[in-house]
Computed example of a mutant assay.
Amino acid sequence: MVERVAVNPEVVAWAADAASAADIHLDRFAKLEDWIDGLLDPTFGQLQDFASTTHVPLGYFFLDHVPEEHLPVTDFRRREVRGSAPSSALLDTIATCSERQDWFSAYLARLGADPSPLVGSVTISTAPETAAGAISDAVGYAAGAPSATQQDALRHMVEAVESSGIMVMVNSLVGNNTHRRLDSDEFQGFTLVDSLAPLVFVNGSDTKNAQAFTLFHEVAHVALGIPGVSSSAGSPDHDHDLAEVERWCNAVAGRVLVPAAMIPARVDLSNPEPTLEALGRRFHVSTLVVLRRLHDEGRLTWDRFREIYLAEEARLRAIAVRRLDEDKSSGGNPYYVWPYRVGRRFARAVIADAREGGTLYRDAYRLLSTRTTRAFDGFAAHLEAH
């Protein structure tokens, strides 16, 4: 006789709905509808498989009610996104980054490192221009520096921010799991604040231009000393959906990437597309960021800004510029994107400490999202060579 385990059908339905929203296919669970309807319970083996597939803790299926999951940091996303429960992909990514931050902060404390001078160095009453100048100086970033490609430009930005003592992680996946992709419509980045090891995470599922803006938006959160999860405001009509903190961080990021002094004295927007494209390429930002900066500097009335912005937003959506992430440009070398997924400075510290006996290899593997000695050694060799 087949032994089955009694589960809460409501939790099974909740897990199935969340998996479907994340494009996780459940076709192989032939009796899933019966489990949801309470007509049949799964076997323990089937339940283990289902829990693993849907990324839901096994114990949840025995709860009396559907669990309420909350973000561990402030939710600064736009209003319509804040109204939905966070995905397991987002929650797991925050948990992984938090564990890495805790490890790195303790590691730096052992070395006697000084606190980061950027954390909490400004307040929301600081003028965005002043904060942008302080951030640019702290990270050594020069706006508009020539780069062969947008990916090269983003790489230089990440390396500049890391050199200032901020942990930076850019990933389109949960860890290294190619079956669990992050959704840039759910969030674009988040910040975890720590005096020794502040951390910013950038959703690599977005365009390179959008990632650049998110990077410095999150650095602005570090400067404020305020952690949280962020998303784009979308069109100008959605600006009111954002908290004051988010609007301030957007203003700072825009000024870091497109300083007022570098905007040409004359900008012809009679035919917006070529002008915006040229300025976007110069500053390595999206044309929408260029438009916002022109409006910030009084070059456009609100009505004209909104008109051009909505048309440009539709144009960008039509040409499908999204979903071009590092995984598709790595040339088949898995070690190419790995340093950006976990952070180059952090990875080097974990590898060095494991080799010196300070960290168990099994813990080092988990921190670097790997499972094998071969992958660990290959990643270490890649870092040493680059």
Results as ranks from 00 to 15, higher is better:
Pro339His: 13
Arg110Pro: 04
Asp353Ser: 15
Asn177His: 15
Asp185Trp: 09
Asp303Pro: 00
Asn333Met: 08
Leu316Ala: 09
Asp241Lys: 06
Ile319Ala: 06
Glu33Phe: 06
Ile94Glu: 00
Pro236Asn: 06
His221Val: 03
Thr370Pro: 07
Tyr365Asn: 10
Asp152Thr: 08
Asp327Met: 10
Val5Phe: 10
His238Val: 04
Ala30His: 12
Phe29Trp: 03
Val139Phe: 01
Glu307Ser: 13
Ile36Thr: 03
Asp268Phe: 05
Val2Ala: 10
Phe61Ile: 01
Thr373Ile: 12
Ser369Trp: 15
Glu3Gly: 07
Asn271Phe: 05
Ala223Arg: 01
Ala220Pro: 00
Gln151Cys: 11
Asp37Arg: 14
Ala381Phe: 06
Glu3Phe: 10
Asp75Pro: 03
Gly59Asn: 11
Ala381Arg: 14
Leu47Thr: 02
Glu273Lys: 15
Met1Cys: 06
Gly133Lys: 09
Gln46Phe: 02
Ser231Cys: 03
Ser147Thr: 06
Gly38Lys: 10
Leu63Asp: 06
Ala233Pro: 02
Asp92Phe: 11
Glu68Ser: 14
Val256Thr: 00
Pro264Asn: 02
Phe305Ile: 04
Gly280Val: 05
Glu129Cys: 03
Pro86His: 04
Leu111Ala: 15
Leu91Lys: 05
Gln46Asn: 08
Ser235Gly: 08
Thr191Phe: 00
